[in-house]
Amino acid sequence: MSDSAASILRLENVSVVAGAKPILRGVTLDVPEGSVFGLIGPSGVGKSTLLKCCNRLTDLIPGLRVEGSITFRGQSVLGRRIDADALRAKIGILFQQPAVFPRSIMANVLFGVSHLGSVPRRELPMVAERALREVALWDEVKDRLTSSAIYLSVGQQQRLCLARTLATNPDVILMDEPTSALDPQASEVIEQLILRLRGPRSVVIVTHNFAQARRVCDRVARLALVHNIGTVVEIGNPAIVAAATREEE
């Protein structure tokens, strides 16, 4: 398939077990490079867990075991010898609740990239500006880069978190219901940003909002509980999957 040649993330037969309880079973999907890929389905089906498998944040949850194969640009993700920290710099993540650090806006944007050592120190201000412009926050904060980030609105904080991730220049950005904590206007801003990211970067987004999936996603995978274990039941064009789901309900 020509499609798979250009896939940036590929999950094959991925299963997740928490202790003795299976959470996800037999998930297979391809994320095409440069696309926005949606994961939809009811809550408790394991969408967030699946997302966290992709950059090994599941390592931090005790008792969680991930099986199967996940490859990023053809390289295995799950092996024991893989440097998970370096991987996470290439596959960034945005959480439901913006978690800004109690520091200045500037320090927040540069928090990740300054540790990775991939950018010379004197270029950091430029990186910060580029990232903040990319999330359309530059004009709002350029006069107060040194003031604390915790006084920003929740919507601004979420964009700051996105800028923080973008500053590390990841190839893939995982988003875990990035707009569910935001009001409609702030959500719309984030959605537009997602559309702009598409192309140079790939996005995997978890959402429970079908309308949002239709607006931003190129492809979606619908997860559902089968025998009480989450799995992918359908992959395809967001409009068709969402419509089919509605009929089912």
């Binding site: 950059n55 944040l57 931090l60 920290d85 370096a86 991987l87 996470r88 710099a89 290439k90 960034g92 993540i93 959480f95 609740q97 978690a99 650090f101 928090f111 990740g112 540790h115 990775l116 978190c161 923080r164 991730t165 590390t168």
Partner: peptide, 17 residues
Amino acid sequence: PASQRLAARGLGLTATE
């Protein structure tokens, strides 16, 4: 809060950092 640690790890920082 655990979310602070998770955010840092999500950016690719090591546990030590």
